[in-house]
């Protein structure tokens, strides 16, 4: 028996927004520690990793580990039927081929339930090594969304360069070049509005704007976002989900075709 109850049902609606642009389907792996989801987009260029801890739910029970393959398009349709104030409960039997979503209004005067068929998914799971990144950049998530939107008008790739002085985003294309520089915030009155850079060594990497824009669909989950980079490894874009977990996106860089000297 699996049951997870979330008072703040809107959180799950937002998580759905953060996933469905990149993924058509995904396996939700449930254990007594919580819910985890890891999946690559079809092109295998980016990866989404979602972690929702058991303690973050108002009620959480998972007797046996189970992996629920869900069509995210269908799941999104169902979650659209929930109002933002609703309490959402996800339920499944141990070997069931369906999952049930229950939406309760705050006053308990309306209760709806939706049953959805599960899918058999044979997904590749990647082992992601713990990495000490050369640069981590924390910035307001809305600022990051704005930067990605603005620069994707210029070209399909964006260069993110991080130095001691600050971080620079730039894109180049037919109409010209766009550069956005953010300096470390001098004063930090509100922590979530700060730009904070921690750097061991400067890094400059190129990424496809398209994926970055998809990642920013998670903006509503968190006031700030953290970017982690090291030379020649995938970028990590992390949105914390308050008190309950995080969603992390990994994006493979664009690298120049090597040519021997």
């Amino acid at each position: 028996m699996f049951e997870a109850r979330l008072l703040q049902g809107s959180l799950l609606k937002k998580v759905m927004e953060a996933l469905k642009e990149l993924l058509n389907e995904a396996a939700w792996d449930c254990s007594d520690a919580g819910i985890q989801l890891q999946a690559m987009d079809n092109s295998h260029v980016s990866l989404v990793s979602l972690n929702l801890r058991a303690e973050g739910f108002d009620k959480y029970r998972c007797d046996r580990n189970l992996s629920m393959g869900m069509n995210l398009g269908s799941m999104s349709k169902i979650l659209k039927c929930a109002s933002n104030e609703d309490i959402i409960t996800i339920k499944a039997q141990d070997n069931a081929d369906t999952v049930t979503f229950v939406f309760e209004s705050p006053e308990q005067d309306k209760v709806s339930d939706y049953e959805m068929k599960l899918m058999n998914l044979d997904q590749e799971h990647l082992g992601i090594p713990e990495t000490d990144y050369a640069c981590t950049i924390r910035l307001p998530s809305s600022e990051f969304a704005r930067i990605c939107r603005d620069l994707s008008q210029f070209g399909e790739s964006m260069v993110i360069s991080c130095t001691k002085e600050g971080v620079r985003f730039s894109a180049t294309g037919d109409i010209g070049t766009g550069n956005i520089k953010l300096a470390q915030s001098a004063k930090v009155d509100k922590e979530e509005e700060a730009v904070v850079i921690e750097m061991q060594e400067p890094v400059s990497l190129t990424f496809a704007c398209r994926y970055l824009n998809s990642f920013t669909k998670a903006t509503s989950l968190s006031k700030s976002v953290q970017l982690s980079m090291s030379p020649e490894v995938p970028l990590v874009v992390e949105y914390k989900i308050e008190d309950i977990g995080h969603v992390r996106y990994y994006l493979a860089p664009k690298i120049e075709d090597e040519e021997a000297a």
Binding site: A252, E256, D257
Partner: peptide, 11 residues
């Protein structure tokens, strides 16, 4: 010219 890598080259 930069080539888009896939995640399998890293993980």
């Amino acid at each position: 010219f930069k080539k888009q890598m896939t995640l399998q080259s890293f993980f």
